[in-house]
């Protein structure tokens, strides 16, 4: 049986369903984790030392625990802590998907906030001094000078996070979310043959990552190409599993 034949049958259909769930989960968590990352970063800009330290510790703690453990906690543990009404509401919906999405968003959000923060910190001091010397306020300096530059150098690491996040959605299979790898495993259980389903799933991830890598390169070429000095790219924090 060739890969084409395999994919054109009903197994192809299952894998397609899995791919759609993977893309949905990736899209939802990418948006949510970006918002979480931005909010955490903004809170960390607070002038209060204690607030900075508390949020810093929270971010580090989230990053120190495996994503699988986050997923397990949000799926098996957290719903029990909810009030009855809310829990009923949750169980009436796609509870597996929701819990996985919450866990992945929080986990990736912590990594994104680190990227954003090191992006902000990589802007040389002279930039804010030049802006202040013209008479801009601290907020105006942040808004017109620091933020636009930080955003531009943070885009490539953010695309890297998008890639890692997409791969990480596979961990949702551990709580029964029918994403791509889950469907591949299910087909294996039916056919007792692992090669075709896993090869198909693998191919899909390679294509997704290739597209994101190309996007990142194109961005670096166009948006950052005029730079003659070596780019101060902040170190990407790999999410891993």
């Amino acid at each position: 049986m060739t890969l084409i034949e395999f994919l054109s049958g009903r197994y192809g259909e299952l894998l397609l369903k899995g791919l759609i769930v993977t893309l949905q989960l990736s899209g939802v968590t990418l948006a949510a984790s970006f918002v979480i990352g931005v909010v955490l970063t903004l809170i960390r800009l607070s002038p209060l030392w204690i607030v900075q330290q508390a949020v810093g510790l929270l971010v580090d703690a989230i990053r120190s625990v495996p994503l699988l453990v986050h997923v397990i906690f949000w799926y098996f543990g957290a719903p029990e802590l909810l009030p009855d009404g809310l829990r009923m509401w949750l169980y009436a919906r796609d509870v597996n998907f929701i819990c996985a999405a919450v866990a992945i968003s929080i986990y990736a959000g912590a990594f994104i906030s680190e990227d954003l923060r090191s992006g902000l910190r990589s802007i040389p001091r002279g930039q804010s001094e030049a802006s202040l010397s013209l008479g801009f306020s601290g907020f105006e300096t942040f808004r017109y000078i620091i933020l636009p530059q930080a955003f531009r150098i943070t885009v490539p690491p953010l695309l890297g996070q998008a890639m890692t996040l997409t791969k990480n959605t596979s961990i949702a299979l551990m709580i029964g979310v029918p994403e791509l790898v889950y469907q591949a495993r299910r087909i294996q259980d039916i056919t007792y043959e692992p090669l075709m389903p896993y090869a198909s799933a693998t191919l899909v991830y390679v294509v997704i990552c290739a597209l994101l890598t190309l996007a990142s390169r194109a961005y670096s070429r166009t948006a950052l190409s005029h730079r003659t000095e070596p780019e101060r790219t902040p170190a990407t924090r790999e999410q891993s599993a």
Binding site: A184, T202, A241
Partner: peptide
Amino acid sequence: FYIRSVPLLLHVLWVYF
């Protein structure tokens, strides 16, 4: 690139099965 673009979980299943 191949190793880095496939989820670790999928690598585990490849090696396992």
